[in-house]
Computed example of a mutant assay.
Amino acid sequence: MKGRKIMKFVFDLDGTICFKGKPLSEEITNALDACRRLGHEVIFASARPIRDLLPVLPESMRKYPMVGGNGAFIARDGETIEVTAFTTEVAEAIRQVITAFQLPYLVDSHWDYAYSGSEDHPIYKNIDPLKAAKKVALEDIRDIVKVVLFPGDYLDAVLSELQKLPVCLYEHTSENIVDISPYGIDKWNGLSKLGVEAGEFIAFGNDANDASMFLKAKESVCVGGHQVREMASLQVASEEAAVIEMLDMLSEKYSGNIANRNT
């Protein structure tokens, strides 16, 4: 077993293994370390851009393979190796929607960002906590990679306009936001760029943007009661202890001791 990765374990972050925007707890970190000691590989796949994904991880895990921005950012060994931006035409169309409805927004470039939302919104607290980027004006962002809109009372009208565009949309009702990625970009797309193959990984997630990887996973674990649980093979409560118990069980199940069994 030494030197060989038995199974890849892929984790969403917010609401899956870290809660209320806080960094990974010591207990979760220990469970991930135990998973790796059994020979498995750990990969993170988040809606956050890499810039905002890194601060919630212990330094020892910041060079693990990562998918950020729902697939728009790909990182390995501490380096961002690929970034997918919107086409110029689609970026301009999104700008027009923002202007037409006077919407607050979070717009990410390759590293810097533009933000016009409320500082009281939970998402604001997760933006660049390490102060590694610059907050710039929207017109100063040349390549737009990821967009979060705060539609307020205009949700239906905003979705109607966005659905006309070649983009990937995720509506997060609990936060009243709409998450937009370039067409064809999702977490599974990002994982495939890291060399992950269908049926050869375990996925943990809790929201609609995890559906693409759930559908390709050997086992998929929905944390909490989101509708995406219908695409998962397993479900646990949205509680750290329950997630750790499931992770421990699956780590052991796919360890070298039983790797050759029909499971």
Rank of each mutant, 00 (worst) to 15 (best):
D33P: 00
G69P: 06
T29I: 12
D14L: 00
M7T: 05
V42Y: 08
F73V: 06
T99H: 15
P55Q: 00
Q102S: 15
I6E: 15
F19S: 08
R51H: 04
D77T: 11
K5P: 08
L24R: 02
F9H: 10
V83N: 12
G15M: 03
K63Y: 09
T29C: 05
A31Q: 00
L38C: 07
R4V: 11
Q96F: 14
D12V: 12
M66T: 01
T99W: 15
K63N: 11
E59T: 12
N70M: 03
V90H: 12
V83C: 15
E79I: 10
V42C: 01
M61L: 09
R95H: 05
K8F: 11
C18Y: 11
G69Q: 05
T16V: 05
G39L: 09
F44P: 07
I17C: 11
F9E: 00
F11I: 01
T87L: 14
P65T: 12
I50H: 01
R36C: 02
Q96M: 15
L57F: 00
T80H: 11
F11R: 09
K8A: 14
T88D: 15
A85F: 06
L54W: 07
V42Q: 08
D14E: 00
Q96I: 10
T99R: 13
Y64S: 15
R76E: 14
V90C: 15
P23D: 13
M61H: 02
A31K: 05
S60V: 08
R4E: 11
E92Y: 11
I17V: 03
P58W: 06
V42F: 00
V90I: 14
A47I: 01
R48E: 02
I6H: 15
Y64T: 11
Q96P: 14
F19T: 01
I81A: 09
N70S: 05
L57C: 00
S60D: 11
E27I: 08
N30C: 15
C18H: 06
L24M: 06
E92G: 09
D12Q: 09
P49D: 10
A93F: 09
L13N: 10
K20Q: 13
K22E: 15
F101G: 02
L54H: 05
D52V: 00
E92M: 13
V90F: 13
E92K: 14
L54Q: 06
I43H: 04
T80A: 10
N70C: 05
L32Y: 06
A75H: 15
T16A: 04
S60F: 05
L57Q: 01
M61T: 03
L32M: 10
F86M: 02
F19L: 06
R95E: 08
R48W: 04
E27W: 06
D52S: 00
I98A: 06
D33K: 12
N30L: 15
V56D: 07
S46H: 02
I6K: 13
K20I: 00
R51L: 03
G39A: 04
T16N: 11
A31V: 02
G69K: 10
H40S: 02
D33W: 07
E89V: 13
R62G: 06
L38W: 12
A31N: 02
M61N: 03
I6C: 13
A34G: 07
F9D: 07
I98N: 09
A31H: 10
A34F: 09
K5C: 10
N70V: 05
C35P: 00
G78I: 08
L13S: 01
R36M: 09
E26Q: 13
A93K: 12
L54T: 01
